[in-house]
């Protein structure tokens, strides 16, 4: 079956960091793209994020996630390219469709921002054991209920991936063509969505029953089997991120 997470087990500096620090990095990098929305600056944040993926030895694993978000990115470019209200300078035209410089600049900023979000989340998800992260959050006072909602959301993608193959086989067995032209593939997609979603919902329901049966919602105080891990340079990293954010705000206000 394989494990039900996106987590990639590797031995790297990023893997050993406190999940909370990585979570802070996600928040900080996204905040930065709003505080300083210059494309060049966002590109810098993006570069650092990709660097972290490389250091964490999970850059290759992040590519499918990035590819998936390209669909979203592509539609952003088109919509912004066409319809941005400030559109004035004509850049180029494909047939009757005209692209404007202003729209494309905004689109570029958005594309970079989405990439930063996806990249930063990849750093967190791919290098952090989900149970470790949730346990850490619960220890910090988050309700276990929310913790398990997070866990089940994280399980959703691998869960769907696991059922997708079976469902494709079942529909092919009923004569549905899945190979060939793009149109054929798109048509083949619909008979898969329903079963994938329903199967995932069903499994999530059964699993939440299993969680209930293990008393996860108990009102009393929880204990933990594993002793608390010591994370290296925890305060330093967190402090650094906070300082960078503050500096960025100051820069924005002054500049």
């Amino acid at each position: 079956m394989g494990s039900m997470t996106l987590y990639v087990e590797k031995n790297s500096l990023i893997h050993h960091l406190d999940p909370l620090v990585k979570l802070l990095y996600v928040a900080a990098s996204i905040a930065l793209t709003y505080i300083l929305p210059e494309p060049l600056f966002i590109a810098g944040v993006l570069f650092i994020t990709f660097l972290l993926l490389v250091v964490g030895k999970v850059f290759r694993n992040s590519l499918p996630i990035v590819a998936l978000s390209m669909v979203l990115i592509f539609s952003l470019v088109i919509v912004q390219g066409f319809f941005h209200p400030d559109n004035a300078t004509e850049l180029f035209a494909i047939g009757p469709v005209v692209f404007y410089e202003e729209g494309l600049t905004v689109a570029l900023g958005l594309v970079l921002r989405v990439l930063v979000m996806v990249g930063a989340f990849s750093v967190l998800i791919l290098t952090t054991r989900p149970d470790e992260m949730v346990e850490r959050l619960i220890k910090k006072g988050m309700s276990p209920k929310i913790g398990h909602v997070i866990l089940s959301v994280l399980q959703l993608i691998p869960q769907m991936r696991a059922t997708m193959g079976k469902i494709t086989d079942a529909q092919r067995s009923r004569g549905m063509e899945t190979e060939g032209k793009l149109l054929v593939r798109i048509k083949a997609f619909f008979p898969l969505i329903g079963p994938v979603v329903l199967n995932s919902l069903n499994e999530t329901k059964e699993r939440s029953i299993a969680l209930e049966m293990r008393g996860f919602d108990a009102p009393g105080k929880k204990t933990f089997l594993n002793e608390e891990k010591i994370y290296p340079y925890n305060k330093q990293f967190a402090g650094m991120l906070v300082i960078i954010i503050l500096l960025a705000i100051v820069w924005r206000v002054i500049g």
């Binding site: 079942a170 092919r172 009923r174």
Partner: peptide, 20 residues
């Protein structure tokens, strides 16, 4: 597989894998 479907049927174990 789609062409073979005309000649051979396969009933899967879990109906939830196909019903849509």
């Amino acid at each position: 597989a789609a062409q073979l479907a005309k000649r051979m049927g396969l009933v899967f174990q879990n109906p939830n894998d196909q019903v849509f």
